[in-house]
Nucleic acid binder design. Structure first.
Lengths: 218, 218, 218, 218
DNA sequence: CATGAATGAGATTTCATTCAT
DNA sequence: TATGAATGAAATCTCATTCAT
């Protein structure tokens, strides 16, 4: 969707413009889409914000929709890759891995502009079906199964109480999602700021205790 | 489409309507907004679906936005009222109340058309600021504080381990939210169907265990 | 393509507007398309010429293309009907019928605005494939075969010398077409004005003599 | 299309081009204009088809319109020259000359790409007035008067029955025009293929018989 | 109450054309 | 000579909203 970005490792010289333009356009688009919504942002606005003419935007992206799709792909694919890599390479206990992943994800989310993406995706998914496809292909269909499997393995190993992995997945990520949406969409921050990290620690406290196999029952 | 409405006082049979019209319009709007998104639904479509002319819709609602606001208010206010009533009237233990409320909320969500509302709210919030206000006023600002207080009370009573009530609130409702959004927006259902009730039970298993004060520490 | 035009024979009262609008729009469109070409005429221009707003035009015709198609259908269908009727009902000798038809067609063409249509069709056919379909369906596929058959019958009856009916058809209508195109497209009129009728008589003189079976051979 | 013209004597291998470029651009333009129409062909497409960049096309032709004009001039001027030469040099009887010319014209038309030109001219004439001028200047104003004069001479010599020369001109060329347009624009070929030569022979049979002075009357 | 008719104000997208390199 | 980058100027089409009836 995004124009070819031959990001050759060699020759990372200086040649500005042209090379960096698509990214600049996406930056501008993210800014505006997050602030006003996709439908209420005009291509003209994006172009001006990126310091280009409207027509120039179409030089890099074939349609307004492609702008959105490219934006999402650029933002989330790396996170998904990272997460998958971590799951694949580590042989830590499932619960430990889960805790690691949550902390990592949250650290990523904290980067500027990233937190707006999930809200954006949810917001525009119905209107722009392409988004659903991109997001499912790039994130959901890759990460969620991996996490589900991770939970299932924990259960099999006796390190997690016998829960339904697929449903437990919701208990895993839901709180973070709720936190982000509450903040992004409704401006509802807990006292003392957004505190994504505190949220995760609080959540992990509950989650890990809740997932631990029952001792007393034995 | 609509039954004949003879203006004259005779012919008492066919009548009603007129009173119910606004509701019918909202029904049609919900249907369409949920399916296509607010921006992609035209007033004409809503009107036709309600069996009215476009201009007639403006007889009942001053603008397309008002349609959306009215829709949300109608859908969520009762749920919020119910929840608040339950919290106020019951003097059950906090954790018990929490479990009750989650089960109740989920039962409500299962009614046709209701589940689409949260997704709709999230989707249009940025574009239609009025939605944020309505939703905050009708739901969030009433229910969330009540729940937070409930958690805090549980902590104070020693029935809940010492967690941050505001953040824990996210752990409480997040999984349900995640479940609904995954299903509504991405069409991701767990194996064996949506199973909202199974989700809640799975979630409560983890949550209640996770919130319970630590025994072994002693 | 054109909006439904319930032109009931009863109640032909006066109710202007709305009823006559589509036709007014087509009139304006014909004027402009003929003068500037389809591609170089904007919907705005058509609308203004018809005394409407741009959007109102879209109330009656779903697209600019539909405007063109409707225009052609309205203009040529009656002529084709007339011609076919004449062929079917008359049992005159083929050559007589042919002469009749040519004279009738030319009389029709002389009506204001009609002569521009063939030129318009030829001009825009490549750009708007719909035109080709409409024109073939409404005119060519109906009239040409009828004429071909007529010629073939004349040959069979010995009233026309043994020529190829399909190719002879070109000799029949080509001169009129050339006359119209030369005038419409290049502004080339013969001395003394367009003189469509004189053209036909001149052409018929040649054609009838040329088609008559050879006498000397006997 | 045109033979390679290596200006320099050295370096005969890789080179050429440069000189032939404009012609290659016109070749590409003809191809595309004929297939899609002038308005629907972008300069970019022409450029790519000619193996150049868009900007390079502007090196050879000052505008898109100039492309079209050049195209037509290149294609039709030789035919007109040929026809005029034939008329001027031969002292055959008018009817014989006319027959010769028609056969020659048709042979020319059969060359690839040529038949599309008349249709193209007709199509774009209204939109691009320059075309009308070019075509009139290069073809019509030179060839048509010559043919008219030829017919008049035939009449004067008693070899052609007393017809109107200008109008008879339409009877002369119209059938060929009709044949070409029917085929090019509507895809209507007679049974057994396009058969331009068969068309001419059939037409000449009728035409010559039709133009011959009446014998029986005498 | 209800509607058909009408419109003003955009939004996306396309392209011929220019220019620095 | 050649090009990639950029843009100004439109053109089609959409829609929320109004109003006379």
């Amino acid at each position: 969707m995004a124009p070819v970005q031959t990001k050759e490792t060699r020759v990372p010289k200086f040649r500005r413009r042209a090379e960096a333009r698509p990214d600049e356009v996406l930056d501008a688009a993210l800014q505006l889409f997050a602030a006003q919504g996709f439908a209420h942002t005009t291509v003209e606005q994006v172009a001006r914000a990126a310091g280009l003419s409207k027509a120039a935007v179409y030089l890099y992206f074939p349609s307004k929709t492609a702008l959105l799709a490219g934006l999402i792909k650029r933002a989330v694919a790396p996170v998904a890759d990272l997460a998958l890599g971590q799951i694949a390479q580590s042989d830590a206990a499932p619960l430990v891995l889960i805790a690691q992943m949550l902390r990592m994800a949250v650290r990523r989310l904290a980067a500027p502009g990233v937190m707006a993406i999930p809200a954006l995706v949810l917001r525009e998914a119905a209107a722009v079906p392409e988004i659903v496809q991109v997001y499912r292909a790039e994130v959901l269909d890759r990460v969620l199964p991996a996490l589900t499997t991770l939970i299932a393995r924990g259960v099999a190993l006796g390190q997690i109480r016998p829960v339904d992995p697929e449903l437990t997945l919701r208990s895993l990520v839901g709180p973070v999602l709720a936190h982000v949406l509450l903040a992004e969409v409704f401006g509802l921050h807990p006292e003392g700021g957004l505190a994504l990290d505190r949220l995760v620690e609080n959540h992990l406290t509950i989650l890990l205790a809740g997932l631990a196999p029952e001792r007393t029952t034995a």
